[in-house]
């Protein structure tokens, strides 16, 4: 029996690896094969043709694309992320601290959003059709229907402009006390929590509601089980797969949502770095950031798939 689980899990991992290769291929070609000559960009419009040609050779720009792709991929695998075009610093050095900042933001958000969303989603399903359920549903539809920047700007309007409780911008280097942390992270985390939780609540609720309509839940009801028992003992263990998936998908959305949030609150994270890199067409930096995001997404999804396999009682 465990053999089957192992082979299924290994299968998922293999799929993730293949996907990663395809994705890196896509990222590489999207950023390098399209118009705009890197050497010219680097040296500026006034550079002599000889200088440009020299740089092209030095950067292997004249090699066939597939070679350059493999070269780049090998570099990535060895931890060589390349050098930034914009300021000639190693990409790794540029990313380091900012990556940690983004992770902090994501971790705090996840720590708040996941328990909150699961509780709301499960309880809404438990009391389906009640006023509470309807309120939760309307709220979540409202949140998923508006752009993230609207939630962020509303938060600024309310807490910074009208109430004047919080600063409008984040400066992580000034943080020293708990109060500072609260002030700095409050709005970015609040915004991201809203954005991420809404999806998670909806999907969790849907998963539980679906399991609640199965014959075995009816059977439990006819044994005299109470509503919490029906949900917690009978529905939830069977809804685990879809719920884990919902959590993973929502958290992966964090990766996208963070781009807007970091920009608005001027938070020095990796997403902000990437947006700035786009403005300067700093390709190695863009490529690396993109790969980090894709890797994060794939890890989450694969983890969810494997957890779903583990939680499937039929495979025991």
């Amino acid at each position: 029996m465990n053999k089957r689980i192992l082979s299924l899990a290994a299968n998922r991992l293999a799929i993730a690896l293949i996907t990663l290769v395809i994705v890196s291929f896509a990222v590489f070609f999207a950023t390098t094969l399209l118009p705009g000559d890197t050497a010219t960009i680097l040296l500026g419009q006034s550079a002599t043709p000889e200088a440009v040609a020299g740089l092209r050779t030095a950067m292997h720009l004249d090699d066939p694309a597939i070679l350059r792709f493999l070269h780049w991929l090998m570099g990535l695998a060895q931890g060589d992320l390349g050098t930034s075009y914009a300021n000639n610093m190693p990409v790794a050095a540029l990313i380091g601290g900012r990556f940690v900042n983004t992770l902090k933001l994501a971790a705090i958000t996840a720590a708040i959003a996941v328990p909150l969303a699961l509780t709301l989603g499960i309880t809404a399903a438990m009391w389906r059709g009640s006023v509470y359920d309807r309120a939760v549903t309307i709220l979540t539809i409202g949140i998923i229907s508006v752009p993230e920047f609207m939630i962020a700007t509303s938060a600024v309007l309310i807490f910074a402009v009208y109430l004047k409780w919080l600063p409008a911008l984040s400066f992580t280097n000034e943080v020293s006390t708990f109060y500072d942390i609260l002030r700095v992270y409050a709005m970015p985390v609040l915004t991201l929590t809203f954005v991420v939780s809404a999806q998670m609540i909806r999907m969790t609720r849907a998963a539980v509601v679906e399991t609640l309509s199965t014959p075995y839940v009816e059977m439990a009801l006819l044994k005299g089980a109470s509503r919490p028992r029906l949900v917690l003992r009978h529905a939830l263990p069977n809804a685990l797969g879809p719920i884990v998936n919902a959590v993973a998908l929502s958290l992966s959305y964090l990766l996208g949502g963070v781009i807007i949030v970091e920009t608005i609150f001027n938070y020095p994270g990796i997403a902000k770095l990437m947006v700035d890199a786009v403005a300067t067409r700093d390709l190695p930096l863009i490529q690396t950031c993109a790969m980090i995001f894709c890797l994060g997404y794939l890890t989450l999804i694969t983890l969810a798939d494997i957890l779903a396999i583990l939680s499937n009682p039929r495979l025991r």
């Binding site: 839940v217 059977m219 006819l222 005299g224 009978h234 069977n238 009682p313």
Partner: peptide
């Protein structure tokens, strides 16, 4: 009363047993 005075045997036990327990 359910389960103590009146009990139920379903048409499809295969569907009425919780697969996770």
């Amino acid at each position: 009363i359910r389960g103590t005075k009146v009990a139920y045997v379903p048409q499809s036990a295969a569907a009425a047993f919780n697969p996770a327990m």
